[in-house]
Amino acid sequence: MPKILKYVFFDLIRSRWSIIYFLFYFITGLVLLYLGHDVSKAIVSLMNVTFILTPLIGTIFGVMNYYNSREFIELLLAQPIPRRRIFFGMYLGISLSLSLSLLTGMMLPFVFYGVFGSDHTMSLIILLLSGIFLTFIFTAISFYIALVNENRLKGFGVAILVWLFMSFIYDGVFLMLLLMFQEYPLEKFSIILSLLNPIDLSRILIMLQLDISALMGYTGAVFSKFFGNSSGMFLSFAALSLWTALPVALILKKSSKKDF
């Protein structure tokens, strides 16, 4: 597995897309910090960008990389190594190279600006951490979708739909349910719904860090009490880990049975 991981990682990190991805975060971060001069606002803006872009890029790279490596995968499959090493290695290679672009691109502007060690360190760390989680989650989901669908167009379409659902439609349905059942107490229901979507979960974790918890008012107190304490934090990261582990398990299961 480390062998495959290593080469896939080197292959991707050298591609110009990785560099563009890195530069995007780097420049966005610099612009937000040096033009806005408000770290908290910069983090919120960066959060908006990250939570749309990270899952989208993970989705696109997961699908594209699988389809583009179709022939190379066959070559590897004919080599004396077990299948799970090939696919797990590839998956990790993609996720890690994307995460590295994200991590460096996002962190460097803040390092230059001198945010580390300030009050905002924690929210920045959580932003980076959840960005990396989202990369791993959506790469895994799209990689799995590509593995299931031999038809590139269909695979691509399904993966984009899943992204669209998670980052847009889900919240729409969420809001509709809240409006429909507004006579009932909805705090627990809301917490459960947000645990079920990694993008929402990441967003809430950062919002609570940025002290917007008080803004959430009376009901917000319930949320911040849940997500704010260590066990809620643990539960949130456990949910994110589960979100990563589940599609990875599906990849391993599917790849062990699939005909190539």
């Binding site: 847009f168 409006l179 947000s194 809430i204 959430m216």
Partner: peptide, 20 residues
């Protein structure tokens, strides 16, 4: 306006959907 009707919906603050 939505929040004033359903306070719990604050949990969706700054989501892509809400921005839209």
């Amino acid at each position: 306006f939505v929040i004033s009707k359903v306070p719990e919906s604050i949990i969706l603050l700054r989501s892509f959907f809400i921005d839209m």
